[in-house]
């Protein structure tokens, strides 16, 4: 093969993998919606609402993970931070009024930000790899959640729960979906297009190059983890809103699933690439799967197997594309 052909083949493989990365997730999601419609013809407004409600905490976890991964890290304490926000909100809001609950929600989201920033600061200062630090802080935050609420309990005012479960805020979309769009739209979208967002992407892509262009990669990483903490806080409050109680061990699920959503959603774990849309759609997909299994009368426990298989398949396809690229 001549050099020119070689270049062409490799760039074709490259553009194919880029194309898949950008459009794969929306296409996969569309296909799963169509499949759901085929399985369950009555899939309507009510099911959309329960899908959005069920997916809300995971979508927040996926957004948190995506932001951290984009800036070149990984956060294995996402689930525990969600658990902390969950039990904190359920125990504080139990006897609060609706207005107080809204104030408490803001406060709890700030607690999430602080937790995330602590993760980031520990990573930057100790120079221990992200995986090890967040695996350990995940253990610590898990202990904090158990300290706040030993066993499932607590609650929130019914008006507050109604924000998530209702469909009264907008004529077309269920509230949960609206909340999801607002949370991501109001916090992440402006940051993404600002200098801060650019510095997160730059740090994830190449910290040294980012440093030489005037970005402080250490600060960028702390901010990324802090921002991740904000979304974990929202996720935990959303979990209270959707389940009505606080459960100290409920968070564990979200650590692994958030990484799954990020990988399936096409964000590169090498950092610097990808967005939040893919992981959010992946979170919806991962919530839709067990629903479909129930419609099909299959044990919904297969959901976890499918989730694992999906991760492995997605990364293997990515690896296979790179493998072919390397050979050609």
């Amino acid at each position: 093969m001549s050099a020119a052909n070689k270049m062409e083949a490799s760039s074709a493989a490259h553009s194919l993998s880029r194309y898949l990365r950008a459009t794969g997730m929306p296409l996969l999601f569309l296909a799963s919606i169509l499949a759901t419609l085929a399985i369950h013809r009555d899939f309507g407004a009510f099911d959309v609402q329960s899908l959005a409600l069920g997916a809300l905490p995971l979508a927040m976890a996926a957004t948190a993970q995506a932001i951290v991964v984009i800036s070149g890290g990984i956060d294995l304490s996402v689930g525990s931070m969600i658990a902390v926000a969950n039990v904190l909100s359920a125990s504080l809001m139990q006897h609060a009024s609706f207005r107080q609950s809204l104030g408490l929600a803001v406060l709890i989201i700030l607690v999430g930000a602080v937790q995330g920033a602590i993760n980031g600061t520990l990573i930057v200062l100790s120079r221990i790899p992200d995986i090890v630090v967040t695996l350990t802080t995940g253990f610590i935050w898990g202990g904090v959640a158990l300290l706040i609420l030993e066993r499932p309990g607590g609650g929130a005012p019914s008006d507050f729960l109604e924000i998530g479960a209702g469909a009264d805020l907008s004529p077309v979309l269920p509230n949960a979906l609206l909340l999801l769009i607002v949370a991501v739209g109001v916090i992440w979208v402006p940051i993404r297009s600002s200098r801060l967002g650019l510095s997160l992407y730059a740090t994830g892509s190449d910290p040294i190059a980012a440093f030489r262009s005037g970005v402080d990669p250490r600060l960028a990483r702390i901010l990324a983890y802090g921002l991740g903490g904000v979304f974990c806080g929202i996720g935990g409050v959303a979990l209270t809103m959707t389940t009505g109680i606080g459960a100290p061990l409920a968070g564990a699920y979200y650590t692994l699933s958030s990484v799954a959503a990020v990988v399936i959603g096409g964000v590169s774990l090498n950092g610097g690439r990808g967005g939040v849309l893919g992981p959010v759609l992946a979170a919806l997909l991962l919530t839709l799967l067990p629903m479909d299994l129930i419609f099909l009368n299959i044990d919904p426990n297969y959901g976890q197997v499918i989730q694992g298989t999906l991760i492995v398949l997605v990364v293997m396809i990515g690896g296979f594309a790179a493998f072919m690229q390397g050979r050609s």
Binding site: I131, Q304, G308, I311, V312, V315, M316
Partner: peptide, 27 residues
């Protein structure tokens, strides 16, 4: 296969297989 042949990051690969095994055991 994933890590050595297809060059998948070990973290993701083993996370995925861990989920598969955990789910398969539940079933």
């Amino acid at each position: 296969l994933g890590v050595a042949v297809l060059r998948v990051q070990p973290l993701v690969m083993t996370l995925g297989t861990g989920l598969m095994v955990g789910g398969a055991m539940t079933v």
